[in-house]
């Protein structure tokens, strides 16, 4: 089940979008999320949707793959849409069939909200699909660097994030192993009341935590003997490289915002 979910997954490639610097991508997506709230009429929402589809096309992500992976979220969006259809009772009556009454404003609001939601999800998914977790961490670290002045431990946070990402598969494997070990001892996680099931999870979590702490201790020692003393005086192996395409997408963003402001307003 988790295999199919693509929210937060990375698929390597070499499209224009893949090759962007993580800083420009992060900046773009962050600003885009803010800019989405500028849209307030059909023209602006259509523009946002068209733009997002264009980005998907440029990133060479197959639509089927994308929407198949986002099924649960699409379901949520359709649900929101229906809720608006049913519960908003403003504007002209469009459909009046037996007990179902759908009003114009409901349709409009529903579609707007759905597009907004869809566009946000798609953009962030494109970001994570085309950027490796390490690059995202690196990008974040450099973007947040100025915040060191206000004593935000930027380097430490980035390191924590990259180590967590690094250990996710290791801990998943371990969970799997412990699960099998407990199953072999006759523990049953799939039947019984909720209370019984929760109780059955405890023998799974305890060994997992014990081993995670052991790992953390080993890792701390391994880092220390390899000369880790915090961010001070450290050089970086991963170099970020801001190129023309990165400047280009920032310019594109400015044009997009200008277009949104120009188109928004009346209906």
């Amino acid at each position: 089940m988790l295999e199919k979910m693509i929210f937060g997954r990375y698929v390597p490639g070499d499209s224009f979008v893949h090759r962007l610097d993580p800083r420009s991508k992060l900046l773009f997506v962050f600003l885009f999320i803010v800019a989405v709230f500028l849209a307030n009429n059909t023209a602006t929402y259509a523009l946002l949707l068209a733009f997002t589809l264009l980005v998907i096309f440029i990133a060479r992500i197959r639509l089927y793959f994308l929407f198949n992976g986002l099924k649960p979220i699409l379901f949520l969006i359709i649900f929101t849409l229906l809720m608006h259809f049913i519960f908003t009772k403003e504007g002209a009556l469009l459909i009046d069939w037996k007990f179902i009454k759908i009003y114009e404003e409901g349709v409009r609001q529903g579609i707007y909200i759905s597009i907004r939601f869809l566009v946000l999800v798609l953009m962030t998914t494109i970001l994570t699909l085309t950027t490796s977790p390490i690059s995202i961490t690196d990008g974040m670290e450099t973007l947040l660097n100025p915040l060191k002045r206000i004593k935000l431990p930027v380097h430490e946070l980035a390191l924590m994030m990259s180590i967590s990402l690094r250990f996710i598969p290791t801990l998943m494997d371990e969970t799997d192993k412990i699960l099998k070990a407990q199953l072999a001892r006759g523990s049953d996680l799939t039947s019984g009341t909720i209370k019984e099931r929760i109780r059955a999870v405890v023998p799974l979590l305890v060994p997992l935590f014990v081993s995670a702490f052991k790992r953390a201790e080993d890792l701390a020692i391994a880092m220390e003997v390899r000369g880790y003393r915090g961010g001070e005086g450290r050089t970086r192996y991963r170099q970020l490289d801001w190129q023309w395409r990165d400047t280009l997408i920032i310019i594109i963003f400015i044009i997009l915002v200008a277009a949104l402001i120009w188109l928004r307003g009346g209906r």
């Binding site: 180590i163 690094r166 790992r215």
Partner: peptide, 11 residues
């Protein structure tokens, strides 16, 4: 050290 996983720091 002994444990191959616990000393692998990089991604």
């Amino acid at each position: 050290f002994q444990n191959p996983d616990n000393q692998f720091v990089g991604s």
